[in-house]
C-alpha cells in the first residue's frame, strides 16, 4: 500500500505521432523573439491565466515548505525550530561523505538501479507490445486487466508471497527436499539478492508500467500498418518501422526521468528484507536516510543526503536530456 516509489514510476504517456521531428516542428512555429514582451503578454493572456493555478500550487505547496530544507545546513533540533537551530554550513555534508556506510549505500543503490534499468525498464514496453499484438480483443482486455493487479499489493505481502514460493520452506524447496535434492537458498542469499529484488519489482509493476505504453500505442494510426504491409513489410519490419517509433518519445522521456531518479530504487522492499540478507547487501540510499533521519534522530544528515540525491538527479536529467537532444529527441524539456 505504501509503494510511493512505484506509484510514480510509470506515470506517462504520449500520443507520439511519429514522423515529425522536433526540427520540423520548430520550423513550423513563428519566431517569437522579435515580438516585444508587453505584446507577448497581451497576446498570451489566456495561456498565462491557464498557467496560474498550477504555478500557484507549486509555489505554495512546494517552494514555501521547501525552505524547511535549511536543516541540511543546521544542527537541527525539532523543538528548537528551524529559525533558532545553529547553522553549521556544509559540515553535515562532510560528515556524510566521510561515512563509509554512505558510500556502501550509494554503491548498492547504483547496482540495483543498473539492474532495474536493464531488466525492469524494458519489461513493461515488451509486455505492452505483446499484449498489443494479441488479435482477439477479449483476450487482450482480459490479460490487460490481470497483469496490473500486483501493483496494488503491499510490499509486506509481496515478500510474504515470494517467501511462500521461493523461501527456505516454500513450495520450491519443499519439492526439492521431497525429491532428495538440496534446497536452494534464494531469499536469504546476499549474492542472489539483486536479482531477487529486481524480480519482485518486475512482478509487481510490469503491468502497471505497461498502461502508459498501451496509451501511446493506442494512438498509432492503424492505416500505417496497412500501408506498410502493402509496401511488403513483414510483421517484424512493421513493428520496427511503425510500432516502435510510436512509443519512442514516451520511452525516451521515461528513461530520462528514470535516470533523474536513479538514486531511488525503492524503500520498503529493502527495509523488509534487510535482516534476511544483511545491511551490506540491502542498504540503499533511502534506507540509509531513514536510519539516520528517523531511527537515529539525525534530521540534518537525512536532509543533507536528500539534497545530495536531488543534485545528482538533476545532473542525470540534464545529461540524459542533452543526450536525447543530440539524437533529435525532445526529452523532457527543450533547449
Amino acid at each position: 500500500m505504501i509503494s510511493l516509489k512505484t506509484e510514480r514510476r510509470p506515470d506517462t504517456t504520449s500520443a507520439a505521432h511519429e514522423a515529425r521531428t522536433p526540427k520540423a516542428r520548430k520550423q513550423a512555429r513563428p519566431p517569437t523573439s522579435r515580438v516585444p514582451l508587453g505584446r507577448r503578454l497581451r497576446n498570451n493572456w489566456v495561456m498565462l491565466a491557464l498557467m496560474a493555478p498550477g504555478l500557484l500550487f507549486f509555489v505554495v505547496f512546494f517552494y514555501v515548505p521547501m525552505l524547511g530544507n535549511i536543516v541540511a545546513f543546521e544542527d537541527y533540533q525539532p523543538f528548537i525550530g528551524f529559525k533558532d537551530s545553529a547553522l553549521v554550513g556544509f559540515s553535515n555534508f562532510q560528515e556524510l561523505f566521510a561515512d563509509a556506510a554512505f558510500w556502501e549505500a550509494v554503491r548498492n543503490t547504483l547496482l540495483f538501479a543498473a539492474l532495474q534499468l536493464v531488466l525492469y525498464f524494458p519489461a513493461p514496453l515488451a509486455l505492452a507490445l505483446l499484449v498489443n499484438s494479441l488479435v482477439g480483443s477479449k483476450v487482450r482486455r482480459f490479460v490487460q486487466s490481470i497483469v496490473y493487479l500486483p501493483h496494488f499489493i503491499s510490499w509486506v505481502l509481496v515478500v510474504a508471497l515470494f517467501q511462500q514460493v521461493l523461501g527456505g520452506a516454500g513450495l520450491l524447496n519443499n519439492f526439492l527436499r521431497a525429491h532428495g535434492m538440496d534446497p536452494l537458498d534464494i531469499m536469504t542469499n546476499p549474492h542472489a539478492f539483486p536479482l531477487l529484488i529486481t524480480a519482485q519489482v518486475i512482478w509487481k509493476d510490469i503491468g502497471w508500467g505497461m498502461i502508459i505504453y498501451l496509451a501511446a500505442l493506442a494512438n498509432v494510426d492503424q492505416s500505417l500498418y496497412e500501408a506498410a504491409a502493402v509496401d511488403g513489410a513483414n510483421r517484424w519490419r512493421r513493428m520496427w518501422h511503425v510500432t516502435l517509433p510510436a512509443v519512442r518519445s514516451v520511452t525516451i522521456m521515461l528513461l530520462v526521468l528514470r535516470l533523474g531518479d536513479v538514486l531511488s530504487v525503492g524503500f520498503e522492499q529493502f527495509l523488509l528484507q534487510r535482516d534476511a540478507v544483511g545491511p551490506r547487501a540491502a542498504e540503499v540510499l533511502d534506507t540509509y536516510v531513514y536510519y539516520h533521519g528517523v531511527v537515529y534522530g539525525d534530521w540534518s544528515i537525512g536532509a543533507a543526503a536528500g539534497l545530495v540525491k536531488g543534485v545528482i538527479g538533476a545532473l542525470m536529467i540534464w545529461g540524459a536530456n542533452r543526450l536525447a537532444h543530440a539524437f533529435g529527441e525532445q526529452g523532457v524539456y527543450s533547449k
Partner: peptide, 22 residues
C-alpha cells in the same frame, strides 16, 4: 512556444521532481 515565462516555470516544475519538503 512563445508563452512568456514558460521555460522558467517548466524548470521550476522539474525541480520538484528532485527535492521534497519535509
Amino acid at each position: 512556444r512563445g508563452v512568456p515565462g514558460s521555460k522558467p516555470v517548466l524548470l521550476l516544475v522539474l525541480f520538484t521532481l528532485l527535492f521534497a519538503p519535509g
